[in-house]
């Protein structure tokens, strides 16, 4: 079964129709825990993007030799391998970026979104489609995290990307992990509402 979508459609699909955070509602732990600032969201997003693309391609390449009974351990192993490799490469060649991202990269091993994409997509499709799907999912996750980070950083700390824009802290509550859930819920409702409005406008 090969997908009939073009590469661009696959990327857009990951960002809009199947956005990992607001549509698939996967990987909620990091979304809630890490998305306290725009920068954190961006860093984690980049890391997920890399791991997702590498893992998707690997699984798409080896899908025929993976025994169906042990596919989950194999996925986990693949993800863990890529996370470790990326962690080591970054530490060696980009120490400055690693100082900021190091803690996020190690978290990725347990991300539901990556395993789910391997199971749903990469294990059935060819490498090319898996690559673009990985890009789409990674970008979707990154943009979702940044949108969450934007709202939480602005409301919680009154800053954006570390720059003080409001001059005061409107609601410190938004930085705490618990507020992440409220934030995800409210934004999900907002995006659903936009979709309804958009569809209605299209029909009329």
């Amino acid at each position: 079964m090969a997908t009939d979508k073009t590469n661009l459609q696959l990327v857009v699909n990951g960002i809009l129709n199947e956005n990992p955070i607001f549509r698939l509602v996967l990987s909620m732990c990091p979304a809630v825990g890490i998305s306290t600032t725009v920068m954190n969201g961006f860093m984690l997003g980049i890391a997920v993007l890399f791991v997702q693309v590498c893992s998707s391609c690997t699984i798409a390449l080896f899908k025929n030799v993976i025994h169906p009974r042990i596919r989950i351990p194999t996925y986990t192993l693949t993800i863990a391998t890529w996370v470790t490799v990326i962690d080591m490469v970054l530490a060696a060649y980009l120490p400055e970026a690693y100082a900021k991202m190091g803690i996020f990269i190690k978290l990725i091993v347990a991300f539901a979104i990556i395993t789910m994409r391997l199971e749903m997509f990469a294990s059935k499709e060819n490498i090319n489609a898996s690559f673009w799907d990985g890009i789409g999912m990674g970008l979707g996750f990154m943009l979702g995290m940044m949108a969450l980070g934007f709202v939480r950083e602005l409301l919680g700390m009154g800053t954006l990307l570390g720059y003080d824009v409001l001059g005061f802290k409107p609601m410190l509550f938004f930085v705490l992990p618990l507020a992440g859930f409220f934030c995800v819920g409210l934004m999900m409702a907002f995006f659903n509402y936009i979709e309804i409005v958009y569809k209605r406008a299209k029909r009329a």
Binding site: V65, T74, L77, T78, A80, M88, V89
Partner: peptide, 17 residues
């Protein structure tokens, strides 16, 4: 198969290390 997968993963990580 699981052994082979682990060995491969180990090899990749070892080389990277």
């Amino acid at each position: 198969r699981l052994t082979v997968a682990c060995l491969l993963a180990g090899l990749v990580m070892g080389v990277a290390f």
